[in-house]
């Protein structure tokens, strides 16, 4: 039988270099590569440093409390909703303040807010007494569903649905020990879900947890408090004459895979945010 089989040799051109057409330059040899789409933060210093938040990629903003992470996120949301795009915020610790967002210019009608942290029951039974024990067991299992897991599942659903301009996953109040336990496969899955889409995924945390899946990593750090004192009572009590005017933060780019911004190490800029009651 072996003699009946005929093996056709591979065409010789398969082993040669790819066919080149005269006048057409391969993309790999282009002097100027196409610029990836980004969402500007509307803060000139940050935009100059980062080029904006890349669409189709994962951006991580991390830092301790009062370091300006949420202010940066609200600026991003305000920009994206102003473009009539739809955004989603997965709030792992139910910390989002709509008043702050409205003051920052976020169009709340275009922002889907997913508040995690409360468990709900889910039973496959329409209920029958003989199955009640099983239903309760299942419910007990669901009770253990942590808010982080809820947030990850919610973010996954939103990314799979598509069509969002920006999806933010807020793990800002989640202890870093918990956030770091999120398996790397989840971040790979998220990165894969947003690839080749117009969606930007932004993750906020206390420590860097996204690791190599992030296209852009920003670290924020508290710098100073801006105060305003009335001239009459400068430097003196009572304290109600002093007004919290805002705060200054440092934004540091730890990693950037945006083509025009080669991976840099520790490029820093200052971010000044004002309180909503300051005109």
């Amino acid at each position: 039988m072996a003699s009946a089989l005929r093996v056709f040799p591979s065409p010789a051109r398969d082993r040669r270099a790819p066919l080149e057409i005269e006048g057409v330059i391969p993309a790999s040899r282009l002097g100027v590569r196409p610029q990836p789409e980004t969402i500007p933060t509307s803060i000139p210093q940050v935009d100059k440093l980062t080029g904006g938040v890349p669409r189709g990629g994962l951006t991580e903003i991390f830092g301790p409390a009062s370091s300006g992470r949420t202010s940066l996120l609200l600026a991003l949301l305000a920009q994206t909703t102003a473009r009539e795009e739809v955004c989603a915020l997965v709030d792992a610790s139910d910390a989002f303040d709509p008043h702050s967002a409205a003051a920052a210019g976020v169009d709340l009608k275009r922002l889907l807010w997913v508040r995690c942290g409360r468990k709900v029951s889910s039973s496959p039974f329409l209920v029958s007494r003989k199955n009640r024990a099983s239903a309760e067991e299942r419910e007990a299992r669901n009770e253990k569903l942590a808010s982080v897991e809820q947030a990850l599942r919610a973010a996954d659903l939103l990314l799979q649905a598509g069509g969002f301009g920006l999806v933010a996953l807020d793990l800002g109040d989640i202890p870093s020990a918990v956030a770091c336990r999120v398996p790397l496969t989840s971040w790979f899955r998220f990165r894969r879900a947003v690839e080749n889409t117009a969606t930007a995924l932004v993750v906020i945390g206390q420590e860097a947890s996204v690791k190599s899946c992030a296209s852009l990593v920003l670290r924020t750090k508290h710098s100073a408090i801006s105060t305003q004192q009335s001239a009459r009572a400068a430097g003196a009590k009572p304290t109600h004459t002093r007004l919290l005017h805002g705060m200054q933060s440092e934004v540091e780019v730890l990693n950037s895979r945006i083509l025009q911004h080669k991976p840099v190490r520790s490029a820093t800029t200052l971010l000044e945010s004002r309180a909503s009651w300051v005109g």
Binding site: L108, L112, V114, C116
Partner: peptide
């Protein structure tokens, strides 16, 4: 997606906030 999210976090925990 909204119905699935409601199954995860609860019906009243998703939506658009109105001040």
């Amino acid at each position: 997606t909204l119905a699935r999210l409601a199954g995860i976090v609860g019906e009243q925990k998703i939506g658009a906030a109105e001040v």
